[in-house]
């Protein structure tokens, strides 16, 4: 089977740039173009229009008490919900990866429900359950605990939407965690708690932070699942995204954009900080 000339050889096409696989220019071009049209241009143009407001106008728009209250409410509840999610996420991920129990597959699949369920549906469902006359709400009412239409209800909705993020970041890390590490710690005389604290927790810590960051980021901007349960009282239970919608309905475009800019900037800074923290934690875990 020495090389035969049965096939005509392609003549050198001049535009061949060598190297990798075909279709690079086409696929990258399409990707960048559509990303620019659908995502980048709306974001850039929208933000650019916020500059119409000028610094003074911007400052005035975002320092109104109602705006400040809404921003504070959104960020604080998202942070608390993120922290709760991180803890609950570790618990769920641990139980799902370590303890076989009947129905585990179903539970595992159910974790993703908040991701697949439309937020408006989640909102009305949570509200009907936690309203004072709802299934769980009426159990809490005699205890003087009001959930729906209070910040507590907002937090609950945010925990709901953030749950899959917290579980799904920790779960694969726990799954891949070499059990020999725990066995080694045990042979070295560590108690189970010491092992968890000194071996397992440092290994999953970056993932826990990621889960927190994702749940937090999602929570700050969440709208659909919150507005039904929040009560939407200005200064008390009005979240920032809702205030944006309200301002839009009053044709206060500048005011709405100002809030959006603050949300984007703070969310971006928070995520950046958490990313750095996480990188630091990851390095430490890598060294350990």
């Amino acid at each position: 089977m020495s090389a035969t000339a049965s096939l005509p050889l392609a003549t050198a096409p001049g535009r061949y740039r060598g190297g990798g696989l075909p279709g690079f220019g086409l696929s990258l071009g399409y990707t960048v173009t559509s990303l620019t049209l659908v995502v980048l241009i709306p974001l850039a143009v929208g933000l650019w229009q916020a500059t119409d407001l000028g610094w003074g106008g911007f400052w005035h728009a975002v320092t109104q008490p109602r705006v400040l209250a809404a921003l504070r409410l959104s960020f604080v509840t998202a942070a608390i919900a993120g922290a709760v999610n991180a803890a609950v996420g570790v618990l769920l991920a641990w139980v799902l990866t370590r303890y076989p129990f009947p129905g585990r597959r179903v539970v595992d699949a159910l974790i993703d429900l908040p991701f697949a369920l439309p937020t408006a549906v989640a909102g009305i469902a949570l509200t009907s359950v936690y309203a004072p006359n709802g299934w769980i709400g009426q159990l809490c009412a005699p205890l003087g605990l009001r959930i729906a239409f209070t910040p507590l209800g907002i937090g609950l909705a945010l925990i709901f939407v953030g749950l899959p993020f917290a579980v799904r970041t920790v779960q694969p890390v726990l799954e891949n965690l070499d059990q020999e590490l725990e066995e080694a710690a045990a042979t070295l005389g560590a108690s189970r708690l010491q092992t968890l604290w000194r071996v397992v927790l440092p290994a999953i810590w970056p993932a826990v932070l990621t889960g927190f960051a994702l749940a937090f980021g999602r929570g700050v901007g969440e709208y659909g699942s919150v507005i039904f349960i929040a009560g939407n009282m200005p200064l008390k239970t009005e979240i920032a995204p809702l205030l944006i919608v309200t301002k839009l309905e009053q044709f206060d475009y500048a005011g709405a954009t100002a809030i959006a800019v603050v949300m984007l900037v703070i969310a971006f800074l928070c995520l950046l900080a958490i990313n750095l923290l996480q990188r630091w934690a990851g390095r430490r875990a890598g060294l350990a």
Partner: peptide
């Protein structure tokens, strides 16, 4: 945030 996307 979806609301911000809509706003933009």
């Amino acid at each position: 945030s979806p609301v911000i996307a809509g706003l933009m």
